[in-house]
């Protein structure tokens, strides 16, 4: 692609063939309303855990919604469940509920596909 004068950064590519959305599907029909998320980031902006670390709840649940589960369970365990994100979300996503459900869904096994690991740094 050099002739176009720009290139697509490899890291930002999402290869849908590598994604496994089984666990995301398991959360569908659940009433947390995570599906309504518009990625505005208000949750991250107010997050108590985010005030002390690079923990970003928006990034984490977005990864989950995309079916990129690597590192998500571990990241979610840093949440303090304080509920500020839920209170501020303009789309009324019940994030506390979603956080617990995501952790439950991911409990049994986490996809150990190393190819997906880099997405953590991308989002």
């Amino acid at each position: 692609m050099p002739e176009f004068g720009f290139s697509i950064s490899k890291g930002r590519t999402i290869d849908f063939d590598l994604l496994d959305s089984a666990r995301t599907a398991a959360l569908e029909g659940d009433d947390s309303g995570l599906i309504k998320c518009m990625d505005c980031g208000t949750c991250t902006a107010t997050c108590s855990a985010g005030a002390f670390s690079d923990f970003s709840i928006r990034k984490i649940h977005t990864m989950f919604r995309r079916g990129q589960y690597d590192g998500v369970a571990e990241a979610l365990s840093k949440c303090m469940l304080c509920g500020k994100c839920t209170l501020v979300c303009p789309r009324s996503v019940n994030l506390r509920h979603a956080i617990i459900r995501m952790r439950q869904t991911l409990r049994t096994s986490v996809p150990d596909d190393d190819d997906l690991r880099h997405y953590l740094n991308v989002l």
Binding site: A51, M80, L81
Partner: peptide, 12 residues
């Protein structure tokens, strides 16, 4: 920034 008191986690 608050270190949460822990009660929300405890209750859950």
């Amino acid at each position: 920034g608050s270190v949460c008191c822990g009660r929300p986690l405890y209750q859950q």
